[in-house]
């Protein structure tokens, strides 16, 4: 192992990069964003771990438990809204492939409106709980419930701002290397939030409902 056998003839070796390697900006950016999403996934994994530890009977300290107030059909409506939003975004990206600017903007607008529906449903749900006196200060279990669901909602909120920014950028700049790269990274972000919502729905709402 200490000796590394030479395989290249030094006389003929290519020493400098004489070819023009066009630097692929979009693929570098999407890779970096994918790496960021890994860390975002770890963030939710940690929150789920905390929720797991704090969802025993004693974690609710005799206070309200999710089984008492969770309405799976209500959150299922949220699920449908978010999934349709992702689908609309997908249609928009399909229009991007055909360089169809208005198609993309329509898809993004639909995704935005459906995302807003998701968020409004969430805020309504939270204010309803607040009116019943259920907050994150109720018990350790409720803290975990609220923080996990609302961190996800915060992600959706910033995603919605981002969608608006991207609609504006596509309208003013068209399809440049930068805007297309950002559309792709935003798509990854939006998809991941929907995937994480699946886990939130199953482990927090459905599991909370039956336990």
């Amino acid at each position: 192992m200490s000796s590394h056998a030479s395989t290249v003839d030094p006389k003929k070796a290519e020493l400098w990069d004489t070819h023009h390697h066009s630097h692929d900006v979009i693929s570098t950016r999407t890779l970096g964003y994918f790496l960021y999403l890994l860390s975002d996934g770890m963030l939710f994994a940690t929150l789920f771990a905390a929720y797991g530890v704090l969802s025993y009977q004693h974690s609710y300290f005799g206070g309200p438990t999710p089984a008492e107030f969770v309405k799976p059909w209500y959150t299922f409506a949220q699920t449908i809204a978010l999934f349709l939003s992702v689908l609309a975004y997908g249609f928009g990206m399909n229009a991007l492939k055909h360089k169809n600017k208005s198609g993309l903007i329509n898809g993004m607008l639909a995704a935005f409106v459906l995302g807003v529906v998701f968020l409004v449903l969430d805020i309504h749900d939270m204010s309803h709980l607040y009116s019943m006196g259920i907050t994150l200060a109720s018990s350790g279990g409720m803290s975990a419930f609220m923080v996990l669901t609302q961190v996800h909602a915060t992600h959706i909120f910033f995603g919605l701002i981002w969608i608006l920014v991207m609609i504006a950028q596509v309208m003013t700049k068209g399809f440049t290397e930068e805007t297309v790269g950002r559309l792709l990274t935003l798509r990854m972000f939006w998809h991941l939030q929907a995937v994480i919502w699946v886990f939130v729905y199953i482990f927090v709402y459905l599991w909370g409902y039956i336990s």
Binding site: L54, S59, L136, A137, S139, G140, G141, S143
Partner: peptide, 17 residues
């Protein structure tokens, strides 16, 4: 969340751990 919002993740009572 515990210190600013009054959550109970790590408190000794109220179901914290």
């Amino acid at each position: 969340a515990d210190r600013y919002l009054g959550a109970h993740f790590f408190t000794a009572g109220m179901g914290g751990n």
